[in-house]
Design a protein around this nucleic acid. Structure first.
Length: 1116
RNA sequence: GCGCGGGUGGCUUAGUCGGUUAGAGCACCCGGCUGAUAACCGGGAGGUCGCAGGUUCAAGUCCUGCCUCGCGCACCA
């Protein structure tokens, strides 16, 4: 298929001249959406259309958008297109409203994802390997790696027409960006919100890094693991305390047992061997164990007798035998391997006794510190047991030792050689639970005590909540619910990472704990100078010193009392970087001061709902701690993108849809429109490829054909919308109707936009284009443009089409910006992306801000045609009657092309101006209005439950039945009106019933209802089914014509071509001269012969039958 | 376990303050219409509105419990 799409012709020098030239539409041509879009992209690029769209709104009120930075080291998928479509949509919409909407691009370039990628590629899977390779080399590789897919991102972004400035993006690895982050950290440091602590954190030994809660939340997985019940043998009694753990690897580190002081425990003796024992472990008859009373049934598998009961506090202080005597040195501790009390011990699971390994659990650690337990690691940073733990465990990855530990415990006398003969293991049990895993490597995380830096978010909790209240969330329940809940449970933010590629923490520290936080390059330089002056050697610190490891590690500063200070060897959580975007993108406060001041907090951000704990949070966390302000005013939180089966799209599942599959088939317009109409933005979107195809076929093909219809005739007639006028008030009612529908649709569209209901807006607009414009207005108007001569009616139609199309283009433009631009350009000579929003341009008003403007003044800038609600109602009725007419014919078995002499409209609204349309639609000779309702209609009464129910109560159904099935509704109505109607003791008033009129039986008729409630009107359509020779002749002529036209189309004749026609008829009604002449005109027959019934048609003639008549014809 | 959001013909979905016949689109079948486009119109088949109770004259809609899917939180021994 060859395609020609005419856009601008030649260079446009003089805008006015060009406009005059261009305002005359060119023919539309056939549609090739992909070619249309790619051609247009080149033109946009040449014109600088994006920049221009901002430039012309330079004086508008600013609407500040902030781009959430993606990482370019992964390939973009369709789910990225969705997020970008909504970002783009709102920015384009606000731009058309006259706001200045700048869109700076951004790239997230630091952090674990980047490191992992590089580690995999270069096979540097441990920290040792990285350090052996050289941190500088490694970081250089990271620096390059982040751009791996930049071109793929750029191409996707451009192809989908996401207008964002990728030529001047902010990049989190750049010095200026990092310097702003440093400044922010120093603000926190100075406010005392930054602290160094020792905490048990989820730790991933593979990546060598610990995580903050929002990262851990990314990686919960359900796993089944062995859990064990272990007997801790008391030192001074032949009895054991039972404790339970799901992490057997922490048992060598056991140094205490915690019991609830108020919990009731029992001492029991095994009396009988357990039946059906499975797995390892056990107990001998006579053995004595201690556990919480509530959990006996859960835990014990032997028959036992209770020896005594006592509260937990009676156990406190008792000492027991260590499971792995070599693993942890006692040191100074007097409390090691004794029973401790803790009020958080419950009896919901386990044994009511909590095994405590100081370094591997938050509660354990706190308890251990309070009770003076020895704080020794049994596990190294690499996740393997340290030497000296146990000969069979040393050096092995802890998660692989479960079975070994179980075996050691279950051997006679147990792992410590001093347990009961039955061993130290009582039972093992598979345990199913959600356990945190590394969101990058999928390995289970270990809770692990380590040094870390924290932001004291708990100190600003109230402010966080307060600021969140001020944010306009879409949907609102994300803000109130999910995000609010998160904030109410806010924890201090663990922001340090034991990694290499990231923003280094700018804190230097002496061995005795004095600290200094550096907030800028300049400050670093002066501190370095100070240190050099104090005699500490340092490398050069130039203005462009690279603010990364290992460069910054090389500087040694000096404390006030002259001691050397070394940088804390951490980098920041990369989420901190993106949380700094509102100011770091401008290099605030070192640069661009005004830009920042006028653009903070930002007006609009939009990301997937998965960013709730990510970017949505870190933005607010940083802005609150640094500026004591919120970071954004509006946040659109998008639902997850699922595949057609409803599964989450993810790289690991391999179900990611490649956006190019659709860009190259249906185009970006259809892809974007589909995504927006498929459901509410915040609902999960099942991405269905077939849906994109449907959108293309329905929405865009239809729009194009409406446009084509207009443009082709407009070009033929040299139509110039500016050179002629057509007063709307004097246009035909069909035109006034569609223009009113346009105004109504546009207003609803806009209202839905304001409420973030883009899906509703677009569904309704699509419905308007397909049903109102294409299937009714254009279909009804085709003949108006076929006329070669000029007429006011034709002109009206052309102006109407022009107005519909230009307005529709502007409404569609924010969502799907391509085709509508081609159409708008051809119709007006101007790009739609410079056009004004049809509902007004508040951004251009004096004193307007992104948040508020003079509504009245804004409304005055709208450019919509007049609305006529009544007219819309009448037309709705007309269309309904047209449909009803077809049904009447089908029921009566009368074919559509056989005219009826008369149709009656019974009662109802005045609609004489549409009688012509109706007559044509219904194929009747004339329409009459019948005032005598009773000629074709009868009354039916229906109960009005709302009114009736309160009176009738439980009798309502019986009363309603009486009304509904009344044999004499007329009489019943009379008695109701007379106030004498009583059914089952209930007095019935007129408001208790609905009076309906329905068609009388025996006519070819049907009744429709329009309006609701009191405004409801029943209108009947009646068709006269009697035949006359004239009608039969006319009907036959129409059938013949239709067959000939089909043949013409079949023969690929151009519309103007004339034909030679011969027709043979047998068993047919007489065809009158007028109707023959009509056939000749309609089919453009230059010569026509109508043979009489005796002539034999040639064998190659076309043949068909209609109502028993046989027809042959030839077309040449 | 707690919270949020879903569950409506084969698929995608609409459904207002509870009102008696649950509405569209796609796909399917039949018919019609067409110099109108992968279009349009009429009809058909296809629904235990997740399940079970409850409130009510009346429940897709309100209440309770449960099942199920997704997401989030807490996960502790």
């Amino acid at each position: 298929m060859t395609v020609e799409i005419t856009l601008f012709k030649g260079e446009v020098q003089d805008k006015k001249a060009a406009r005059w030239f261009m305002a005359r539409p060119n023919p539309a041509g056939e549609l090739d959406a992909v070619k249309l879009e790619t051609t247009l992209l080149e033109m946009w690029s040449k014109e600088g259309a994006f920049q221009q769209s901002i430039e012309t709104r330079r004086n508008g009120a600013p609407f500040i958008f902030l781009e959430g930075p993606p990482t370019a080291n992964g390939k973009p998928g369709i789910h990225h297109v969705v997020a970008r479509a909504y970002k783009d949509l709102v920015c384009r919409w606000k731009t058309m409203e006259g706001f200045k909407v700048e869109r700076k691009g951004g790239w997230d370039t630091h952090g674990l994802p980047v490191e992992i990628e590089v580690q995999k590629r270069m096979d540097l899977m441990s920290n040792e390997a990285i350090e052996a390779y050289g941190m500088d080399n490694f970081n250089q590789a990271c620096r390059e790696s982040v751009w791996t897919y930049e071109s793929a991102w750029r191409e996707m972004t451009e192809r989908m027409a996401y207008w964002v400035d990728l030529d001047n993006p902010y990049v989190t690895l750049e010095n200026s960006y990092v310097e702003s982050c440093w400044w922010a950290i120093k603000q926190m440091f100075d406010k005392g919100l930054l602290y160094r602590g020792h905490k048990v954190l989820p730790y991933c030994p593979q990546t060598g890094t610990s995580y903050s809660s929002h990262e851990v939340a990314l990686g919960y997985k359900e796993v089944e693991e062995p859990s064990v019940y272990v007997k801790f043998k008391l030192s001074d009694e032949e009895a054991s305390i039972l404790a339970w753990t799901t992490t057997p690897w922490t048992l060598p580190g056991n140094v205490g047992l915690a019991v609830g002081p108020e919990v009731t425990y029992v001492r029991v003796r095994v009396t009988e061997v357990a039946e059906n024992w499975s797995g390892e472990g056990g107990a001998s008859v006579g053995e004595i164990v201690i556990l919480a009373k509530d959990l006996m049934k859960e835990v014990l598998r032997h028959n036992v007798e209770i020896i005594d009961e006592f509260p937990g506090r009676d156990l406190v202080g008792r000492s027991y035998e260590p499971l792995f005597p070599e693993a942890v040195p006692r040191g100074e501790s007097t409390t090691a391997w004794t029973v401790l009390e803790a009020d958080w011990v419950t009896t919901t699971d386990g044994t009511g006794v909590v095994h405590t390994a100081v370094m591997y659990g938050e509660d354990d650690y706190n308890l251990g510190m309070a009770a003076g337990l020895p704080a020794y690691h049994t596990v190294g940073m690499d996740g393997a047991f340290l030497e000296g733990t146990h000969p069979l465990l040393d050096g092995r990855y802890v998660k692989e030792c479960d079975q070994t530990i179980i075996e050691l415990l279950s051997s006679p006398k147990g792992s410590n050689g001093s347990g009961p003969e039955s061993g130290l293991l009582y039972r093992e049990k598979a345990y199913l639970h959600d356990y945190p895993h590394c969101w990058r490597t999928d390995h289970p995380l270990l809770y692990y005590a380590m040094d870390s830096w924290f932001v004291r978010m708990t100190a600003v909790k109230e402010r966080l909540l307060e600021f969140n209240d001020g944010v306009e969330w879409a949907p609102d329940w994300v803000g109130e619910g999910r995000f609010g809940e998160w904030l109410r449970n806010v924890k201090d933010w663990a922001i340090s990472r034991e990694r290499y590629w990231g923003t280094p923490i700018p804190v230097w520290r002496t061995e005795d704990g004095q600290m200094k936080c550096v907030g800028s390059i300049e400050e670093l330089q002066s501190e370095v100078a100070k240190a050099v002056a104090a005699g500490i050697a340092n490398p050069e610190c130039p203005d462009d010193v690279d603010l990364h490891r290992p460069i910054v590690d090389g500087f040694t500063l000096v404390s006030d009392d002259g001691k050397p200070m070394h940088r804390e060897p951490f980098v920041m959580d990369c989420w901190f970087d993106s949380g700094c975007a509102p100011f770091a993108q401008w290099h605030h406060p070192f640069d661009g001061g005004e830009t920042f001041d006028s653009s903070f907090p930002v007006d609009y951000i939009c990301e997937g709902v998965d960013q709730t704990r990510g970017w949505f949070y870190t933005l607010l966390a940083v802005s609150t701690t640094v500026f004591d302000k919120p970071a954004y005013k509006r946040c659109l939180s998008l639902g997850l993108i699922l595949d057609a089966e409803g599964k989450k799209m993810s790289k690991s599942r391999g179900n990611i849809v490649d956006p190019w599959d659709h860009f190259n088939r249906e185009g970006a317009d259809a892809t974007r429109w589909y995504m927006v109409t498929a459901g509410a933005p915040w609902n999960p979107l099942k991405f269905d490829s077939n849906g994109v195809r449907e959108t293309y076929a329905k929405m865009f093909l239809t729009l194009w054909n409406v446009y084509k219809f207009h443009a082709d005739y407009a070009a033929l007639d040299n139509f110039d919308p500016d050179a002629s006028t057509s007063d709307v008030a004097s246009r035909p009612s069909l035109d006034r109707w569609i223009l009113s529908r346009l105004a109504t649709t546009a207003q609803n569209y806009h209202a839905d936009f304001k409420g973030w209901n883009f899906h509703k807006a677009c569904r309704d607009l699509e419905d308007f284009i397909v049903n109102d414009v294409s299937n009714w207005y254009v279909r009804r108007s085709r003949r108006r443009l076929w006329d070669d001569s000029e007429s006011s009616d034709k002109l009206a139609c052309q102006h109407t089409l022009h107005e519909i199309l230009t307005t529709v283009c502007r409404l569609v433009a924010p969502v799907s910006p391509f085709m509508v631009d081609v159409i708008h350009r051809n119709l007006t000579g101007e790009t739609v992306h410079q056009a004004a929003w049809p509902l007004g341009v508040p951004g251009t008003l004096d004193g307007a801000t992104a948040d508020a403007w003079d509504e009245q003044a804004a409304a005055a800038t709208a450019t919509l045609p007049p609305q006529d609600v009544e007219l819309e109602g009448v037309m709705e009725l007309v269309r309904e009657l047209a449909e009803v007419g077809r049904r009447i014919r089908i029921d009566a078995g009368r074919r559509q092309r056989l005219p009826c002499s008369q149709g009656w409209i019974v009662a109802g609204l005045e609609m004489s101006e549409f009688h012509d349309i109706l007559a044509e639609e219904l194929n009747v000779e004339s329409i009459a209005v019948e005032d005598d309702l009773d000629r074709f209609q009868q009354i039916a009464l229906a109960p009005n439950f709302r009114a009736l129910a309160p009176k009738a109560r439980s009798e309502v159904n019986a009363v309603a039945g009486e009304i509904k099935h009344s044999q004499d509704p007329v009489g019943l109505l009379e008695s109701i009106r007379a106030g004498t109607c009583v059914i089952m003791g209930i007095s019935i008033e007129e408001s208790d019933v609905e009076i309906k009129r329905i068609e009388r039986p025996g006519f070819a008729a049907s009744t429709v209802q329009v309006g609701q409630g009191d405004d409801a009107v029943q209108i009947s359509l009646v068709l006269d089914m009697n035949d006359t020779p004239e009608l039969l002749s006319k009907g036959l002529a129409r059938d013949v014509t239709r067959r000939i036209q089909a043949k013409r189309k079949d023969m690929d004749l151009v519309i103007e071509a004339s034909i030679d026609l011969e027709v043979w008829m047998r068993n047919a009604p007489e065809m009158f001269e007028d109707d023959r002449a009509w056939i000749v005109t309609e089919t453009r027959a230059a010569g026509a012969v109508f043979h009489d019934a005796k002539a034999n048609p040639p064998s190659d003639a076309e043949h068909f039958e209609v109502d028993g008549a046989e027809i042959w014809f030839t077309v040449k």
